[in-house]
Design a protein around this nucleic acid. Structure first.
Lengths: 360, 360
DNA sequence: GCTGGCACTCGGTACAATCGAGTGCCAGCC
DNA sequence: GGCTGGCACTCGATTGTACCGAGTGCCAGC
């Protein structure tokens, strides 16, 4: 990175765009550096930052008056805001956005964290659920924010075997084991009371006919000749299919308590509590994360989020792929004033490693 | 309940016990009524309550000066505290304890809530996990506090059937279906790579030998003659047993966000956040609740809790029984300033209904 | 044993004075 | 033209003071 502050990498826009309300695509290099310094300072101190701080703490080589001028411009163009007249500046959502898009050099994770992650993913095999759960705890620990992991959709996984287990007269449990090690089950209540032999026959038919398909795309089973058996086969097949469709994808949330800890970072009273409540509604969270099906790592800052309750926070999300297919998403949820570099690095590394780990 | 305030139900202790530091087992009837009024008032207003409020808002028929005298006594004996000299009184843990033990008449749930509960438990059959999860949501909704439901321990349930499913070469999933509809699974990684036939043989042996036992008490399986099969049988049996022992009982927490909402009720900074963090550690919560294996409904108030982080809250817990055996626990976690009558009624009704519902 | 009365306490509020971090602007310098 | 030092100004935060009033403790009297 050049330390020469007089060589702008971009043609100046001068006064031409003044007053335009759309975000500037580019910024005078010094101003960009001022913006970056403000974001970085504000993220660590949580205090509005003044011109003097920037002038002395960075190697810009300009006086605070100059920084002030730049700040005025940055504010006019929407990157900064002033809580009140005689206070320093804080970044706006647009300011964070520019920072994330243009200024956040990716230094990767600090070595210690890198080792933590490596150790985590090389440790012994775990069941799918445990792995996902612990991954979300890992991410929360790395970033000190709430973290979210969405597991592979069960409806996309291939069925290995299906079984029927009688629990009580007339109540049967259909159990499907999927190729990724997950187990889906569904309770059947039928009028017809099958004999053990019929149940076994139905299970065999199911197992034979459904194995190899995905839950979302189960073939219509053929008849076996025995109407009771057929009824069970049909019912089990439908139950498993609707079960997979109805039940949202597996979701693991960790570190929600960090939101309460960071409460000061959320302006309005009780907005942290509303955020926590939102996180309790799994369906909503899954829908929210699934709604952002961008390729690669995605950042949603403040008001960029559609949900009202997310106006004061940012999401950093990355899908993870298993054998080339996107299998799920990992992400971090924190206040807009978060360390984006850290979060981006953590989410990126964890998503890659998780995908790799699921391939074995 | 007699409205005659001049007929104490208990012999007065007069000055005899003055200065004794152990809690009074009984209390002059009027003082008890004053205490009750203070608790009820404080629970609704969250403000220290003064003598005037009590004198006018209740039918004690005495002046505020008399109430003041009673309050002084109640404070001296440890039932009340004064945040500062010129403020009203608030109940101490001991005050709440007396209220819960002697003063909380059980009026049952309000009709509307009673109907909600009835409707909830008569609605269609659900899978065990869903039922427990929704029960905890129900309880959180009824009480407006965080709620906790511990499900039946898988280790105590009878095994219906065991299956082995090959996932990859050398990796096998052992799946046990339990009588209560739960499914336990465990990943086996073995050096020996069994053929399909051997896997089937092992599964058959497991199924035959383990069915009918509980996971905690699986019999030592007999040999089948084939060493590879035996290895799988042994490994699966051990894996299922240790899995059931290691994995804590199923836990469902709902309404944790209420804690953040009630943050004002928790004195020290960040104690609500610590509480939320504690709730994220399932193992800890299960141990905590299991540690209170009282018969019937139990209340733990403030410092009665062993965990430091629970000093500012109260737990209302009730076990639920299935066919005479205690199967699990439901409970509510809120600030010490909670509506105990409401919480007691809700926890009591829900625990009974949940037990009944699990019997069918 | 209850009550009215009264002095006292002390948190909360309102208001003024002060402080200082930070700004905007301008004239001057390079 | 752009940077800089200087300066007046703003305004939140802090401090100090006064005051109000809810609530208490206590006491003499009924």
């Amino acid at each position: 990175m050049p330390t020469d502050s007089t060589s702008p990498t971009v043609p100046k826009t001068d006064g031409i765009d003044d007053g335009e309300s759309f975000p500037q695509p580019q910024l005078d290099e010094r101003r960009a550096r001022v913006l970056r310094a403000i974001v970085e300072e504000y993220v660590t101190t949580a205090q509005p930052v003044g011109s003097q701080t920037i002038a002395t703490s960075t190697e810009l080589g300009v006086s605070s008056a100059t920084v002030r001028n730049d700040m005025t411009v940055l504010e006019r163009e929407g990157y900064l805001a002033q809580p009140h007249t005689s206070a320093g500046r804080i970044p706006t959502d647009q300011g964070y956005r520019f920072f994330v898009d243009h200024l956040a050099h990716a230094p990767g994770l600090p070595a210690a964290q890198r080792r933590t992650v490596a150790g985590f993913f090389t440790s012994a095999h775990r069941a799918l659920e445990d792995l996902l759960h612990e991954t979300s705890q890992l991410l929360a620990g790395l970033t000190h924010h709430a973290s979210v992991v969405i597991g592979p959709a069960p409806s996309a996984a291939e069925v290995r075997t299906v079984q029927l287990v009688g629990l009580q007269p007339g109540v049967v449990l259909a159990v499907a084991v999927l190729a990724n090690g997950a187990v889906e089950k569904s309770v059947l209540e039928l009028g017809a009371n099958a004999t053990d032999a019929e149940l076994t026959a139905a299970a065999a038919a199911l197992d034979q006919q459904l194995s190899g398909s995905t839950l979302a795309d189960l073939p219509e089973p053929g008849g076996t000749g025995n109407p009771v058996v057929d009824e069970y086969v049909q019912a089990a097949r439908n139950a498993l299919r609707t079960h997979a469709a109805d039940h949202h994808d597996p979701l693991y949330v960790s570190g929600a308590s960090r939101i309460a800890l960071e409460q000061a970072a959320f302006p309005s009273e009780g907005s942290a509590a509303r955020l926590l409540e939102l996180l309790e509604h799994q369906v909503v969270v899954v829908a929210l994360v699934r709604g952002i099906l961008d390729q690669g790592i995605t950042v949603r800052i403040g008001a960029e989020n559609e949900y009202e309750d997310l106006r004061d926070c940012s999401l950093v999300l990355a899908p993870y792929a298993v054998e080339g297919e996107i299998a799920g998403t990992v992400g971090v949820l924190g206040p807009t004033r978060m360390d984006y570099q850290r979060a981006l690095a953590a989410v990126s590394v964890v998503s890659q490693q998780l995908g790799r780990s699921l391939e074995s």
